[in-house]
Computed example of a mutant assay.
Amino acid sequence: MLRRTLLRTGGLTAGAALTGSLWQRAASATATARSPYGPLRAPDTNGVALPAGFTSRIVARTGHRVGGLLWHAAPDGGACFPDGSGWIYVSNSEIPLLGGASAIRFGPGGEIRGAYRILSGTNLNCAGGRTPWNTWLSCEEIARGRVFECDPYGGRAAMPRLAMGRFKHEAAACDPERKVVYLTEDEADGCFYRFRPDVWGDLASGRLEVLCADAATGPVTWKPVPNPAAPLKAARHQVKAARHFSGGEGCHYDGGVCFFTTKGDNRVWAYDAQRERLEVVYDSESPLTGVDNITGASSGDLYVAEDGGNMEINVITPDRRVAPFLRIEGHPRSEITGPAFSPDGTRLYFSSQRGARGDAAGTDGVTYEVTGPFRR
C-alpha cells in the first residue's frame, strides 16, 4: 500500500516519508535517477526493453482471437480482478460507437482460459477504474460521456451510472475510506471530481462534487455540481470556483492519496484526501513525457504510462526516483495504455494502443504481460 504519510505535513525525520511539496521538489531534482530495477536491456523478441530479470509476452492482438474472442481495436484503460486461483484482465476499447470493454481470464499459471465481452455499443471507452466490490467502471471520453459499471466476470449486464455526471470522462479511482469515487476529465480546462454515492457499493444515485481551490496547490474544498446531467451547460463550467486542469488522464488511489495525471502540462498530481490538500508529484519534461494512465504497486511505486514520448512506462518510487521501467520499440505513433498488476503483484499488463502501424483506428493494438521480480 502507498504510505499514508507520503504527503502528510510535519517534520521530516530519517526514514520518514516526505510531504507532498518536498516530494515535488525532490522528484524534479532526481528525475533522471537510476531505476531501482537497473538499466533497460536491448528489446526482446516482442520489441519490449526491460530490466534484467523481467520477461514479456503478447497476450492479445487487435483482430486476432484470444480465448475464443476477437480482440478489440484500440485497447485502452484496464484493471485486474481476482478469479479463484487465477485472475481476469479487463481492457477498454477506445473506438467510436462500438467501444465497450473485453476481459481475458487467466489460470493460476498465467494460461489463458477464455475471453469475452463485458460491455458493447458504447463510445470511445478510454480509461476507468476498479471498485472495491470488484466491478469495472468504463468511461466514455466524449462530450456528455457516461460511466458504465461492468461485471468483469461476465455474469451481469453493464449499467450506466448517470448520477456520476455527463462529461468527457477519463478515469476513476475509488476511495473506500471516504466512500467516494474520484473522476478525471479530459478537457483542456477539465475538472477533478468526486462522486458521493447515497449507499457505498451502489453507484446508481448520489452527489457529484468538483474540486475548488484558489491556488495551483495547497488546501482545497469541494462543491456540488448543480446539474450533473449537463444538458445545456457543461459540468466543468457550473461552479465558478472550480479548479481547472489541463487534460485530466489517469487516476489511482491508495493509502489516503489520489494520484492523477494531466497531459497538457505533463504533471502527476496528488490529492491528500485526509487533509484535503493538492500537491504536484512530478513536473518535468524528462524522463517521463506524455503522462497518461497510472497505476501503483504494493511497494508504493507508481507506474505511469506515456502517450507518445518514447513509449515508456516510468516508475516513480516513494524515495523520489523517476526512471524508465520499460520501453516499447518500433511503435512511434502509438501510446501505452491500461497498466494494471495481477492480484499477486507479479505480472503487469498493458497495451500499445495503435501498435507498430500506428493507425488512428487502432487496428494494430497489442496487449502485453510482463513478469518478473516487481518490488512488493
Rank of each mutant, 00 (worst) to 15 (best):
H244L: 14
A270M: 08
L302I: 08
A297Q: 12
G300K: 07
F245M: 07
A273D: 14
L302V: 07
Y271D: 00
G300C: 04
E306D: 10
V304P: 01
K233W: 01
D301I: 02
A242G: 08
Q274P: 07
L278Y: 09
A297W: 10
A235S: 14
K263S: 11
E285Y: 10
R267T: 11
H237S: 13
S299A: 05
T262A: 15
V291S: 11
A297M: 09
E306P: 06
D254R: 03
N293I: 01
D301E: 08
S284M: 08
S246H: 04
G290Q: 12
D292N: 14
D301K: 00
R267E: 10
R275M: 06
D283M: 05
G255Y: 03
P287C: 05
T261Q: 12
H237L: 14
F260M: 07
Y303G: 05
E285R: 13
Y253D: 10
F245S: 07
R243D: 02
F245T: 05
D254V: 00
E279Q: 03
L302H: 07
L278W: 09
D301L: 01
K233I: 15
A305T: 03
D272C: 08
S286G: 10
A270P: 00
E276V: 00
G250Q: 06
D292M: 04
N293K: 01
P287D: 09
E285I: 09
G256W: 00
G248K: 02
V268D: 04
V257L: 09
I294S: 08
V239P: 03
G247Y: 02
D272A: 11
E306M: 08
G300N: 09
T262Y: 09
N293W: 01
H244N: 07
E285P: 01
R277Y: 00
G296C: 09
Q274H: 09
E276C: 07
F260S: 08
A241K: 11
Y303R: 00
G255R: 02
S284I: 04
K240D: 09
H252T: 06
C258M: 14
G296S: 14
E279M: 09
Y282T: 04
D292W: 02
G255Q: 03
E306L: 02
A273V: 13
V291E: 11
A235I: 01
A242T: 08
R236Q: 12
S299Q: 03
R236K: 14
Y303S: 03
A241Q: 13
D292T: 04
E279I: 01
G256N: 03
R275D: 14
S299I: 00
G250R: 06
S299F: 02
E285T: 15
L288N: 08
A297T: 03
R243W: 02
